[in-house]
């Protein structure tokens, strides 16, 4: 697994993102509530630059007529057709079993004390929830990768 420094923690506060090209791949790195996530910048539907989409919440309901606004800051909406993805897992909201954006692990290593206390919550490489689970070989065409991210001395490290 190769490691790439893709930016500083200080330049990517919660709610912000950075799109980088690493090893020929365009990847979006997101700070979601202080934890870092990385997704391939291509929608599994028609190939749109997914990571340019809006990041916000989404609506749920337990019965018709109800709106429950939830998961604010965790839902990435494709900039073309509006398909929603869970930025923390790469999974499609509408069809989690068939469409999954590949996400990449991002971690923060040796965070500079005080620079961003929340960063310590990022899991160690290999523990990232977004790095597990592809449903079946038949879904290969419909998933977009996620990648592990760590932070070292305030540097955001992307692991491919």
């Amino acid at each position: 697994m190769a490691t790439y420094a893709v930016g500083r923690v200080s330049e990517l506060p919660p709610g912000h993102r950075k799109i980088v090209t690493v090893d020929g791949r365009s990847i979006g790195v997101f700070n979601v509530h202080g934890r870092f996530y990385a997704l391939r910048n291509a929608c599994p539907h028609q190939g749109a630059p997914l990571c340019q989409g809006s990041l916000g919440g989404t609506a749920a309901a337990s019965r018709p007529g109800e709106y429950i606004w939830e998961r604010e800051g965790e839902i990435l909406v494709c900039p073309w057709h509006g398909w929603e993805f869970d930025v923390t897992t790469g999974r499609s909201i509408v069809n989690p079993h068939r469409t999954r954006v590949r996400s990449y692990q991002v971690s923060v290593e040796h965070a500079v004390p005080g620079e961003n206390p929340a960063l310590g919550e990022n899991p160690a490489p290999g523990e990232h929830p977004a790095s597990v689970g592809i449903t079946s070989p038949a879904d290969e065409d419909e998933r977009v990768p996620t990648f592990p991210v760590t932070v070292d001395d305030g540097a955001i490290l992307l692991h491919l």
């Binding site: 980088v20 291509a42 340019q52």
Partner: peptide, 12 residues
């Protein structure tokens, strides 16, 4: 934020 149009171009 840098743009990612090469994805589209390469895809095409």
């Amino acid at each position: 934020m840098s743009t990612a149009t090469p994805i589209e171009t390469a895809e095409a």
